[in-house]
Design a protein around this nucleic acid. Sequence first.
DNA 1: ATGGGGGCCTGCCGGC
DNA 2: TGCCGGCAGGCCCCCA
Length: 291
Amino acid sequence: MPELPEVETVCRGLKPVLEGHRLTRVQTRRGGLRIPFPAGFVQHLTGRRVCQLHRRAKYILADLDNGETLVIHLGMSGRMTVYRDGAALVLDGLAGESVAAEEGHGPHDHVILFTDAPARIVFTDHRRFGLMTILKTAHLAEDRLFDGIGPEPLADSFTPASLSARIKGKKTAIKSALLDQRVVAGLGNIYVCESLFRAQISPRRQASTVAGARAAQLVPAIKEVLRDAIIAGGSSLRDYRHSNGQLGTFQHHFDVYGRTGEPCLRPGCGGTIRRIVQAGRSSFYCPKCQR
DNA sequence: ATGGGGGCCTGCCGGC
DNA sequence: TGCCGGCAGGCCCCCA
């Protein structure tokens, strides 16, 4: 499910109950998710204080006071529910947020973190493509999870030149190249489709031909799309503390994603959004204005 | 070395 | 109403 903006939104939503707070109790309700929990998972976490909560690519990282980091990935269906002050807040980054219906544990609630905020944080992931593990903070970058991951797209270091260098000579379609986390971190199917639309580049175009002038269009488009999505997600979080069940539902707005057969939204284009399959994934684009 | 396909899981939706 | 196929926003392994 979640791509960079959603993970960023979940991360920000967790900050008030995690950063600077101590984990008073930790429960696991199965042996692992996509990968098994490491030995002593619960013991390592219990009693630790979270010094810093941040994000890298699609991972949420909770740096602990013992030199270890709790690494969280939401996979495709992961979400967090925060129970605090008698209110329940669902952080899935997708619908922005919603208020949980009830406090009971469902069959897909896999990990529960209690903090001294005080709060209870429930990690739910029905498809179990997510993961939670613990790594040494000092050696995160060398771990196989992070080794080779590309630049953060919102960092100043992500420029047309740096993107060009990474896709130069690539024969694969630009769509597939952008999904490769080694090329750029954090993009998934939706934001790749949306970025290519904004840059008016066809998802079918060979990646190598985007290096250069087209990259100068694409990089700002990627940054814009991600920033817009983060702002939308963030604004839906603003009323967190005052959540009383009456929060407005934030709806993601996409120009092409999931809009097969609908008119292109570019003024004056008049094209029709098409769906194709590339590397087993759906791509949505306007064949008229994306070349 | 690079790139495509399949698999991991479960749930939902549309069509018959 | 019920069943079945297709689909899902991630990632990793394997094979060509």
